[in-house]
Simulated scan of single mutants.
Amino acid sequence: MRDANIKKLVLAALMAALTYVATSIVQIPSPMQGYVNLGDCIVLLSGWILGPWWGAAAGGIGSMLVDLLGGYGHYAPGTLIIKGCMALVAALIVKAMKESKASYVISAVVSEVIMVVGYFGYASLLLGKGWGAAASIPGNLVQGAMGMVIGLVLLVVLKRSKALEKLA
């Protein structure tokens, strides 16, 4: 039992690091401050592979570190919660729907809606941007769409390669 926990911890740390890299390396500037990135696909994979709690920790922490180290520290608390919730919800939906093919698509869509609504709410209410925060919605929608498509493609590749069986 102890070895399984250590294995999960190490895999969660790896997924947090991959989230950081995917978010930091590919950054497409957005005209409304910030950028679009590929971190969402790894956040989704974290939930799907690690389950709700470890996935939430990996996705949330990896994404939050990007904000802390990249000059967006004021977004760090929101990012931790929003990205953690994305992975948590993705894992719970897949589990509730017994890992059907549709469950991954549905969980990705719901998770990305959480991201778009979460960042709008965080920026408008907690950062005081009001309705001006709506300007970030188009960029977040593009990021969410990219995250869903690439995350689902990566999941199919990992399943076909039997890499996920080796992790279990």
Rank of each mutant, 00 (worst) to 15 (best):
V26R: 01
P31Q: 06
A96T: 13
G59D: 07
A87E: 09
I150R: 00
V156T: 14
V105Y: 00
N37M: 09
L126S: 14
A87D: 07
L50I: 02
G71W: 04
G118Q: 00
A87L: 03
L141G: 15
L50A: 03
L127C: 04
V94K: 08
H74I: 15
G118L: 01
A87W: 08
K129F: 15
I81P: 14
V94R: 08
A134V: 13
L127I: 03
G147M: 06
S46N: 05
M86G: 03
A135T: 14
L126K: 10
L44P: 10
M148R: 01
P29Y: 00
L127K: 07
A87V: 05
W54H: 11
I137Q: 08
G118S: 05
A108F: 07
V36H: 12
G121Y: 02
V153C: 14
I137H: 10
N37I: 07
Y20P: 11
V113H: 03
L126D: 14
I106V: 15
M64Y: 06
K95G: 07
S107C: 07
G59F: 02
A123M: 14
A87R: 04
I61W: 01
K98Q: 12
Y119W: 02
A145F: 14
W48A: 03
V142S: 12
L125E: 08
A76G: 12
L38C: 09
Y72T: 09
G34E: 08
S103F: 06
S103Y: 07
G73T: 14
G132A: 11
L127N: 07
M64I: 05
S24N: 11
A87T: 05
H74G: 15
M64N: 08
A91Y: 06
L68F: 10
A133G: 09
W54G: 09
D67Q: 09
V36I: 15
L126F: 12
G121D: 10
S124R: 04
I150M: 05
V110K: 00
A102T: 13
